[in-house]
Amino acid sequence: MPVTLLRETPSQTAGPYVHIGLVPSAAGLQTRTQENLHVVAGPQTEGEAIKLELNLWDGGGAPIVDAVVEVWQADGKGRYRHPLDPRSSEIASDFRGFGRAASDLKSGYYVFETVKPGRVENIDGKLMAPHISLTLFARGMNLQLNTRVYFADEASNDEDPILAMVPPPRRRTMIAERKDGGGTPTYTLDIHCQGPKETVFFDV
């Protein structure tokens, strides 16, 4: 029997005032409950506490000051807080795995406090390298941009099926560098919409 699929509603840009809806405190509105979403993991969460710093750049080399960045990740043991993951119920209660950040509206700097995720199984049963899924919403983006952040100090990057699909010179656009020394270990990555360092974006 032929099945007619409904058409997905078209996307539209989140626009310059996206913060009102997604990060009201950044727009200058009163902070609501459950709003500190750049803190992805709490003290009970399995995994190494890290900071993830992202700098967003447009094709003219200007910082993207008005985006909202969302992250989605597993905990330190590679478990997603979702009904598809059979180990979901073992996850600490202070970890949802979802985060959202705005900049100070002057710079392109976006930061998350989280844990380094563990390896997650691919559909073929093989493990992927640790990674955080990333979505960017902003003025001038008619549809969100999707990519992943990998970690420079992970040997398993060499066997990751997604990184393997990327030509070697562009892989580094998805690999965050680790900075140690004082306080929480920090991973940093520049995201470029265009240019010689253009980030690899996905059709998911």
Binding site: T13, D58, G59, G60, A62, I64, W72, A74, Y80, R81, H82, P83, L84, D85, R96, G97, F98, V120, E121, N122, I123, M128, H131, S133, A138, R139, G140, M141, N142, L145, R148, P161, I162, M165, V166, C193, Q194, E198, T199, V200, F201, F202, D203, V204
Partner: peptide
């Protein structure tokens, strides 16, 4: 026609990736 897209639209083709557990799950 929408000027802001000029500097923010990626120029390279998007990479089609398989949907792994990372894409089949999401916040509840």
């Amino acid at each position: 026609g929408y000027k802001s897209t000029i500097a923010r639209a990626p120029k390279q083709a998007l990479l089609s990736i398989p949907q792994t557990m990372s894409e089949l799950t999401g916040p509840v």
